[in-house]
Every structure is written in structure tokens, then in C-alpha cells.
């Protein structure tokens, strides 16, 4: 494939993805509200990130799903409407039954997915020629990694001792 036809393909693919993403959102409109206990994350977002978190974070001995999801939710709550929409669109596209298979290669659904299958999906997007997928890969990894390594439970296992303890007493009366 020469550069010109590649550009055409990826542009076409992007348009298809964006419009399909819109369709996915239309069909999923009944699931637009955030899940109970969360500010931003909806049921399909929780499904998607629960499937991916273990694959992204890897064999961290203290990984805890609820802590990680709560941390991610706090990050997205503080972000912008534009960023939240991007995350919603991505999750809709990746979880909507009609788009999930062709877009992610995960045909069987996210609920019972193994870490190997989730990793295969990440790898597929990481090495994709379509920039939208590469953006998705980067977004998923960075959000999950920042969310997990922002919580104290994550620190000891990677040799970060945390802020010096005396600082906690600095402003106590």
C-alpha cells in the first residue's frame, strides 16, 4: 500500500469509526448515566476498564480493582467535558455489540476476557496504522497507569517510599 492509499484508508476508517461511535452512543443512550457510586464512569465504562486494568497494570502484587476504578473516576471527574466525551465515545465503540468485534478484535465480549486476550487487544491498537486506535491505546494505558500509581497501595512494590512522613504532621495544630 502506498502512502496515498494508506492516508485515504485511515481517513475513511476514521470517518466510519466516528460515525459508528455516534450510532453506538445512540443505541446505548439508556446507559448514559454514571454507575452507582461513580461520578463519571458508566456501566459500560466499568466493564471495559475492569477488563483492561489487569492487562495494563500487569502483575502488581497489591493491585485492587475497586481502588483503581475509583481513582480513575476521580481523575475523569476533574478533567474536561471534552475529555469525558472522548472516553465515553471510546468505551461505547469498544463495548457496543455491533462495533466491538471489528474494532477491538474481542468478539466474545469483555466480561469473561482473559488477560492474554486483553493484551492482544492492546497490542493490536498499539501497532495500528490508524491513528485513532493508537490514540485509544495511549489514552487507555496512560489513564489506567496514572490512576493506579496515584494511590498509595501501589507505591511500595515499585520502590517509591511516598512523601516523607513528617510532612503529614506539618500543619497539625
Amino acid at each position: 500500500m502506498n502512502r496515498r492509499s494508506f492516508l485515504k484508508l485511515s481517513l475513511g476508517a476514521t470517518i466510519v469509526l466516528v460515525s459508528v461511535g455516534g450510532t453506538a452512543r445512540f443505541f446505548q443512550r439508556s446507559r448514559r448515566t454514571s454507575a452507582s457510586g461513580y461520578q463519571v464512569l458508566r456501566a459500560q465504562d466499568l466493564l471495559f476498564f475492569s477488563a483492561l486494568f489487569p492487562a495494563v497494570v500487569g502483575p502488581h502484587p497489591h493491585f485492587h480493582m475497586d481502588t483503581a476504578l475509583a481513582s480513575l473516576d476521580r481523575m475523569l471527574t476533574a478533567s474536561s467535558p471534552a475529555m469525558r466525551k472522548e472516553v465515553y465515545d471510546l468505551c461505547d465503540l469498544a463495548t457496543f455489540a455491533l462495533t466491538r468485534g471489528p474494532v477491538t478484535g474481542v468478539w466474545s465480549g469483555w466480561r469473561q476476557i482473559s488477560v492474554e486476550q486483553a493484551s492482544a487487544f492492546l497490542q493490536r491498537w498499539q501497532h495500528s496504522r490508524i491513528s485513532l486506535y493508537r490514540q485509544g491505546y495511549q489514552g487507555i494505558c496512560q489513564l489506567c497507569q496514572m490512576a493506579w500509581y496515584g494511590v498509595p497501595q501501589a507505591w511500595h512494590a515499585v520502590g517509591y517510599p511516598g512523601p516523607p512522613e513528617f510532612l503529614q504532621r506539618l500543619w497539625e495544630q
Binding site: 497494570v57 500487569g58 502483575p59 493484551s119 497507569q145 496514572m146 515499585v158 520502590g159 517509591y160
Partner: peptide, 25 residues
């Protein structure tokens, strides 16, 4: 090099990312 922001720059995911994070210090 606090861990949250650096984790987003280590690249890769899974086992490889975890190994890189263990070299944070």
C-alpha cells in the same frame, strides 16, 4: 519523578510496564 505521572511515560503495558516501574528509583 513522582510515580503517577512517570507511570504514564514508561511506555508499554502489563509485565513490561510493571518491570519498568520497579526501576523507578
Amino acid at each position: 519523578m513522582q510515580p503517577s505521572i512517570v507511570s504514564a511515560l514508561m511506555g508499554e503495558f502489563g509485565e513490561q510496564h510493571h518491570q519498568r516501574m520497579q526501576q523507578l528509583a
